[in-house]
Simulated scan of single mutants.
Amino acid sequence: MRTGVPLRQESLVTPLRLPSLIGCALSLALAAGAAFAQTGTPALPPADEREPIRLLVGLPPGSGVDRISRVFAEALSQRLFRPVNVENRTGARGNVAGEELARSTPDGNTLGVVTATTMILNRHLSRQMGYDPQADLTPISRFASLPLLVLGGPGQGVRTIGELIEVLKARPSTCGTPGAGTAQHLALELLIRSVGARCDFVHFRGIAGALPELLDGGVQVYVEAAVIGLPLVREGRVRLLAVTSRVRSALLPETPTVAETVAGYEAETWLALMGPRGLADSVLVKLEAAAIAVARDAAVVRRLRALSAEPIGGTRTELAATIRAQDSIWGPVARAAGVTAD
């Protein structure tokens, strides 16, 4: 029997050569680039970078800081392609949220909105903090400032900040604030000390308690955040004398600053995005860029100004410099005021 030589069976699949693989990869890359050019939508980050971010806020739901933080969180979520969920951790003038942030894992999944009070004032007013905000937190971006208003009663005859200063210097006066050791209190302390006046401070539980005293002249001046004071100004119930920021506010361009009368004066509170100590540079750079873009977005600017906040969009380097500079100012003022938060 003849044994036939078996025929070699050819593969039905032709192996891809290296040049072919490279060509396929280039084609896919070009196609992806074309899709991005047409849609303007970047590729989504990996799944582990789309986990929700916890954004700790130290004031209660519905407060001015909370509402501003939620506007920021919504826009930040859109920039990062990740949910950003606000979690209110109230208590101890923001220290409860600050301490939880300081103790969180530095992976970028837990961040916080920190105020100037938490970042600077509390260090000088409280001896029982469980962390050091300037050592244990990482600056990312200062995204909004909250102008403070110098207010007087409409029936007191004082129409300008200069006239108010003359009254304060002429005789001991009564000055009102929404609480001892607040940014409003220390802003007024700084003004009094800057002009060499004297003032008996009365600390009310909000402007509602101070309003009758302002109206009948029992209190000559009251300092309050714009988000609270502006509605009363617009209703004509109090008189706006000045803003405490270094330059005029875009919210109130016709209102002079205190600094136009008292050279070098500046007092404001602000909100900043912070992380725990030890954030990786790659995470930090991404968060900083997103936060700056959010604060400079036209729609966000409109929404923040509707809440009486001024968008900033500062870098982490600028935020760190602001913290150092303001700490050197407010530390001595807080100590001289003799108040504690304990």
Rank of each mutant, 00 (worst) to 15 (best):
S20K: 15
V202T: 15
V195M: 00
V86W: 04
P83G: 06
D136C: 08
V221G: 03
D66R: 06
S282I: 12
V223L: 07
S11I: 01
I120Q: 00
Q78C: 03
G181S: 12
F36V: 14
G64Q: 03
E213H: 15
E235T: 05
R103V: 05
T110A: 12
D136P: 07
P276W: 05
R2E: 15
V233K: 09
I165S: 05
P178A: 05
V227Q: 12
R246F: 10
S194H: 11
T160N: 02
A334Q: 09
T257A: 08
L190Y: 10
A298E: 15
V86Y: 08
L137N: 04
T182D: 01
L252K: 02
S145D: 09
L21W: 15
A259Q: 07
T39R: 02
G218K: 09
E224V: 03
V227R: 12
D216G: 01
R67V: 11
D342F: 07
V86N: 08
F143A: 11
V285I: 13
V262I: 05
P61K: 14
R277L: 15
F81D: 13
A298M: 05
L59V: 14
I53L: 07
T315G: 09
A272H: 07
G112T: 06
G155D: 06
A334N: 05
R82K: 12
A341Q: 10
A25T: 07
R93E: 14
Q326T: 06
L279I: 11
